[in-house]
C-alpha cells in the first residue's frame, strides 16, 4: 500500500466516524408522525435534523408530511410540479400551511436551504442527483434548524430509506368498480442497519393512511381483481 493510499484511507475512516457522531444528535427530537409509521421509521417517528429518502410513491411522502402538518407545522413541497393537492389534503396535510415550489430552478440547493431555514418538514425531488458535498452541507443546515427532509429519490446517508415494494389496489375490477383503497408493503432500511417491512393502507377505504391490522385481512383480503368483488360484497352486507 502506498503512503498516499493509506492517507486517503485514514481520511475516509475519520470522515466516517465524524458522520457517525453527527448521526447521534442529542438535540434531535421527534415530530408528530402518523401512527402508521411507528413500525418502520427508526425511533417510530420522523426526527428533526434528519433526511429520509422515499422511493416508489408520492403518496407515501404525503403521508409522512401529514402528521407534522396536521400538528400545525409549516411544510413545503419543492421540485414536485405534479403534486396532487387534493390527495395530500385527504391524507391530512393542511394546505394552508404548505408551500409549494414546483420548479427549483438552477440553484436548487440555495432555494432548498432557504426553505430549510423556516419550514419544519420539506418534501423535495432534486432535479439532479444529489452530490455528497451538497447533502453534507444541507444536512448540517437541517440539524442546525431542526428541520426534516423527505427526499423523493436517493439522498446520500439518509436516516432511513422507505420504498413501496408491493402495491395492491382494491375496488377495481375488469371493467367495473373504481379505485378504493391500496395495500402496500413498505420496506424500510435505516442507516444504522436493519430492514423492516410493514403493510400499510395507502390510502385506506376511509382515505386515511394506517397500518394493516389483523381485522383487515378477513374483510379486504386477496388480490385486487377479485378483491374488489369482495369489497363490494362486504359493503352490501
Amino acid at each position: 500500500m502506498t503512503p498516499t493510499a493509506s492517507l486517503v484511507r485514514q481520511a475516509q475512516d475519520l470522515q466516517g466516524r465524524i458522520r457517525q457522531a453527527e448521526g447521534v444528535g442529542l438535540a434531535s427530537t421527534t415530530l408528530e408522525t402518523l401512527p402508521a409509521f411507528a413500525g418502520c421509521l427508526p425511533g417510530g417517528a420522523l426526527r428533526t435534523g434528519a433526511a429520509y429518502s422515499v422511493s416508489g410513491s408520492t403518496h407515501l411522502a404525503m403521508a409522512l408530511l401529514a402528521g407534522p402538518s396536521a400538528a400545525g407545522a409549516w411544510c413545503g413541497v419543492a421540485g414536485v410540479p405534479t403534486f396532487g393537492a387534493e390527495a395530500a389534503a385527504a391524507t391530512g396535510v393542511d394546505l394552508s400551511r404548505t408551500i409549494l415550489v414546483p420548479d427549483l430552478g438552477d440553484q436548487w440547493t440555495a432555494v432548498l436551504a432557504a426553505l430549510i431555514d423556516v419550514l419544519a418538514v420539506i418534501v423535495v425531488r432534486p432535479p439532479l442527483p444529489v452530490a455528497g458535498a451538497d447533502a453534507a452541507r444541507l444536512g448540517a443546515r437541517l440539524r442546525q434548524r431542526g428541520a426534516t427532509l423527505v427526499c423523493l429519490g436517493e439522498w446520500p446517508r439518509s436516516e432511513a430509506q422507505l420504498a413501496v415494494t408491493d402495491s395492491d389496489w382494491l375496488g377495481l375490477g375488469a371493467g367495473h368498480g373504481h379505485l378504493l383503497a391500496r395495500r402496500v408493503t413498505v420496506t424500510a432500511s435505516s442507516r444504522a442497519g436493519g430492514g423492516r417491512r410493514v403493510q400499510l393502507w395507502l390510502p385506506g377505504p376511509d382515505q386515511r393512511v394506517r397500518a394493516v391490522g389483523a381485522d383487515d385481512s378477513g374483510r379486504y383480503g386477496g388480490r385486487q381483481h377479485h378483491g374488489g368483488g369482495e369489497l363490494h360484497r362486504s359493503k352490501a352486507s
Binding site: 403534486f83 408551500i99 415550489v101 420548479d103 430552478g105 440553484q107 440555495a110 432555494v111 432557504a114
Partner: peptide
C-alpha cells in the same frame, strides 16, 4: 424567507394550493 425564495425563483415560483 419565502419572499427571499420568490426573489430566486420568481413570484409564481412559490405557491399555495387551493
Amino acid at each position: 424567507a419565502l419572499s427571499r425564495v420568490q426573489g430566486m425563483v420568481g413570484h409564481e415560483g412559490v405557491i399555495s394550493a387551493v
